[in-house]
Amino acid sequence: MRAVTNGSDRPLPNGPMPDYVEHKEGVNQVGKLSAEAVVREYDAAVKEIEALGAELSEAAKKCEAMVAGVHAMVGEIKELAANYREEGKRYFLQIEDCSLMTSEVRTVCETLKKKIAAGSSLPA
């Protein structure tokens, strides 16, 4: 950020006059010098304002890039969450399938035990 200084601390801008003004015919030297001094001060202020605008524009670009990065990251997070949800569902179904298979094995074993027990009680 630029520091604003007191006008008396800065030398008057020199060099050619801004191209958007020109002296009128008949203005005396004091009037010309006074008008030049004022327009140069305004022009110097304009340059500071434009520089501030450029800095703000650059800051806005950085913010936009950051926001775009955040949006991309949010997309990745949503994808990760969906993958975790699917993985949780897969484990859920796998555990329930194992539980059903275990119950079925117990039922078959109990039925087989009963058949074996019923068969051994028959006279030989």
Score class of each variant (00 low, 15 high):
Glu41Pro: 00
Pro11Asp: 12
Glu76Arg: 14
Tyr84Ile: 02
Leu52Phe: 08
Cys109Tyr: 05
Lys47Gly: 07
Leu100Phe: 06
Gly88Asn: 13
Val30Glu: 15
Glu110Met: 04
Gly7Pro: 11
Tyr84Lys: 03
Ser57Leu: 11
Leu52Ala: 08
Ala45Gln: 12
Ala45Thr: 10
Ser120Gln: 12
Lys114Trp: 02
Arg106Gly: 01
Thr102Gln: 07
Gly119Trp: 02
Ser103Met: 07
Glu36Lys: 05
Ala3His: 10
Ala81Thr: 05
Glu22Val: 06
His71Pro: 00
Val108Asp: 04
His23Val: 08
Cys63Met: 11
Glu36Phe: 01
Asp97Val: 02
Asn14His: 10
Cys98Val: 05
Ala81Asp: 10
Tyr91Leu: 06
Val74His: 07
Ser57Phe: 04
Arg40Asp: 08
Pro11Tyr: 06
Glu76Gln: 15
Ser120Gly: 01
Met66Pro: 01
Val108Glu: 08
Asn14Phe: 11
Glu104Pro: 01
Arg106Phe: 06
Tyr84Ala: 02
Glu86Asp: 14
Pro16Met: 08
Asn6Pro: 00
Ser121Leu: 07
Ala118Ile: 02
Val105Leu: 14
Pro11Gln: 14
Glu48Pro: 00
Met101Asp: 13
Gln29Gly: 00
Ile95Asn: 04
Ser8His: 08
Arg40Asn: 12
Ser103Pro: 01
Lys61Pro: 01
Ala59Tyr: 07
Met17Glu: 04
Ala65Ser: 13
Ser34Pro: 01
Arg85Gly: 02
Leu80Tyr: 06
Thr102Asn: 04
Asn83Phe: 01
Met101Arg: 14
Gly7Trp: 10
Tyr20Ala: 02
Ala68Glu: 13
Val105Phe: 12
Lys89Asp: 12
Thr107Asp: 14
Ser120Leu: 10
Asp19Glu: 07
Lys47Arg: 15
Lys78Ile: 06
Ala81Asn: 07
Cys98Ile: 05
Lys113Val: 02
Glu41Thr: 07
Met66Phe: 10
Arg10Glu: 15
Arg40Cys: 05
Pro18Asp: 03
Val108Thr: 13
Val74Tyr: 05
Leu33Gln: 13
Arg40Thr: 05
Cys63Leu: 14
Ala81Gln: 12
Lys47Ile: 12
Glu110Val: 02
Glu22Asp: 09
Met66Ile: 03
Leu12Pro: 04
Met101Ala: 15
Ser120Asp: 13
Arg40Met: 15
Ser8Cys: 09
Val21Gly: 01
Met66His: 06
Pro18Met: 03
Gly26Ala: 09
His23Pro: 01
Glu55Arg: 09
Gly15Lys: 04
Val108Leu: 15
Val67His: 07
Lys61Ser: 14
Gly53Ile: 06
Tyr91Thr: 00
Ala59Arg: 09
Val105Trp: 01
Gly88Lys: 05
Gln29Cys: 03
Asn28Lys: 06
Lys89Cys: 02
Ser99Ala: 11
Gly53Asn: 13
